[in-house]
Design a protein around this nucleic acid. Structure first.
Lengths: 233, 233
DNA sequence: CATGCTTTTATGTGTATACATAATATCATG
DNA sequence: CATGATATTATGTATACACATAAAAGCATG
């Protein structure tokens, strides 16, 4: 069952994908091992490995040493959302970006914030709220707490011309983070900023980032009603 | 500036990450080329390539032929959400999964559905609504249209014991899809199923999948209020 | 028959080498 | 000086080879 010489790992990948989509290899099926496929395709095993590894990363194949490679029974669709700087997001849509600082204060944080950031309940943190605009319409409301105990530089920034969003990315590294998506009703205050009725359904993204063992920032970004995040799978 | 022999691509990656996080290489900086790093680390260039390529895939590095590799100026956080079979999602949370078919009909679809699926406005499509339960509480409402013109097998399924969600994944391949996330107010009908007040903010995931040039299905999944999707970055 | 050791096997990875390719830099020429 | 040909260079990839490692299968022993 020799196939024409496929020289690139992409072409091997395409052929493997074709076989999966054509159901020649069905979900759950064990596929031939790398050495056999290499012989079949007339290429080196490393080339097959590259192709299969990449498909496994995408969730279409499941690989285990010694056990072999099988087609994922229920391929988990991996939706990768790019969480970019909000300014870029707006500009990429071809709109004019605007920015308004709504609040900047150093104060003791609510307990759920200080707990999330792992700081003492008495520590004063930097609280920044800002509105991001797209063609002068409210686009997203950023409600952020910065761990100014570990990021003291933040206290010297007024965040009037550069958003905390951008300043942090440029200035403070992080090694890991958590992110969550939810739909929540807009509070009276949120609704005022976003120029929408109270209790409107808004998309909320919560992020918590850490630099090694130090928390950096906790932020909630609320998008104006109707906002969609899109991606391909 | 010789570093101790780093034999694995993971250790090279870790050291590169350390330098980025320690700001030895700052956002926007050009880093040494693969050959130099290989000499530095005392390993082969392919090993360095593997490490850097993987970091580039994660969005931390930007690579261009001849131009070299630089630290991403504003690393785009890539949040990868696993959109699994809903049953697995519930079971993974340690809850008991339940399933109730709410509606199954073959009829002419609303124009926005037939347009999205690229079928004629007069074509009868299969419409399925089902409720997914977690410990007997409403978890998600699945509102699906299946392109039964191209997936006629679907007409023979009653979807009473297996959800359309699972049946399609097992039975019908797709090559590509679009997915979008939004927050919407629950309609009266949705609210009844989800057992929540009308206009509650609910997280909606819309998916549209294709098998080559044929649309397969358009589905909206509404999660009960309070639902969060989480991931690490 | 259960339990733990050993063998086998498929994937995972590192190396040296070679060539491909994109993109920049340089140079020649009008 | 502008323009296009050419050289250079860093990444991208294919190959053959070797060895590492996880896990299944087989085997021996109590």
């Amino acid at each position: 069952m020799n196939v024409q010489a496929a020289q690139t790992w992409q072409s091997v990948q395409e052929e493997v994908l074709r076989r999966i989509h054509a159901r020649e290899w069905k979900p759950g099926d064990l596929i031939p091992n790398e050495a056999e496929l290499a012989k079949d395709f007339g290429c080196a095993r490393s080339t097959v490995n590259r192709a299969l590894r990449s498909l496994a990363e995408r969730g279409l194949l499941e690989r285990r040493r010694r056990a072999g490679t099988r087609v994922a029974a229920q391929p988990v669709a991996k939706a990768t959302l790019n969480i970019a700087v909000i300014r870029h997001e707006v500009e990429d849509r071809g709109a004019r970006y605007g920015y308004q600082l709504a609040l900047r204060e150093a104060r003791v944080a609510p307990t759920h914030i200080s707990a999330a950031l792992g700081v003492g309940v008495q520590d004063r943190l930097l609280h920044v709220m800002a509105l991001h605009l797209s063609d002068d319409a409210p686009y997203a409301l950023e409600d952020r707490w910065i761990n100014s105990v570990h990021v003291p530089d933040a206290l010297e920034q007024d965040f009037r011309s550069i958003s905390a969003n951008e300043w942090l990315l440029q200035s403070v590294p992080y090694t890991r983070g958590e992110i969550s998506f939810a739909a929540i009703p807009a509070s009276a205050e949120n609704a005022k900023h976003l120029n929408c009725p109270e209790n409107s359904a808004v998309l909320a993204i919560n992020r918590l980032t850490w630099d090694h063992d130090h928390s950096v920032t906790a932020v909630q970004v609320l998008f104006a009603p109707g906002h969609q995040m899109r991606t391909q799978i």
